[in-house]
Amino acid sequence: MDRNNLIKWLKEPKKMGNKYSLWAVYFSTACGVIEVPPVLTSRWDAERFGIIPVATPRQANLFLITGYVTTKTLKAIIRTYEQMAEPKYTIGFGSCPINGGMYWDSYNTIKHLDKYIPVDGWIAGCMPRPEAIFIGVTKLWGMIDKGLATGYIRYRENYDYYRGNQEKLFGSMEWPPLYTLKEGTNDG
């Protein structure tokens, strides 16, 4: 952990600030969030790394998607993701969001979350232990450091692709596009 590395702070304050101040908003269904409270509270105390839960996506820069994603809840996920401030990072959490998990053959479960929003990292497990969450966060730090956690840039640049996929799934979207779409590509 290079949190006290002053030279690095002076060199790239943005990167360092984003690394050590991850404010999390989490989406959870079913058993998904069961391991998050111990992480955030006294037992594992994520606040010592600057990770705190916040109330609205506007304030957050880390999005934890815990638990299976259905077609209906995907809308809320996309909406929340679009409302977060940039730079923003997404972590798929547990096997359900990764590939449907135990709901792998459900007609209604989303098996490819990263077709709809960009995901920066996955934490496998059913459920992942708090230690695994910390390992995931450490990996995310590394990615931020190397400039690999670029999901939000991918979303902006390939917005036609993501919006197209979303529209294909939902038929029509209730809210207007976040970024301007390029000509003739929004038919998916």
Binding site: T56, P57, K75, A76, I77, R79, Q83, E174, W175, P176
Partner: peptide
């Protein structure tokens, strides 16, 4: 952003 791009716990309120 427009006025209806507003936080409502993820849902879109008409």
């Amino acid at each position: 952003v427009e006025q209806d791009n507003n936080y409502a716990a993820g849902s879109y309120v008409p």
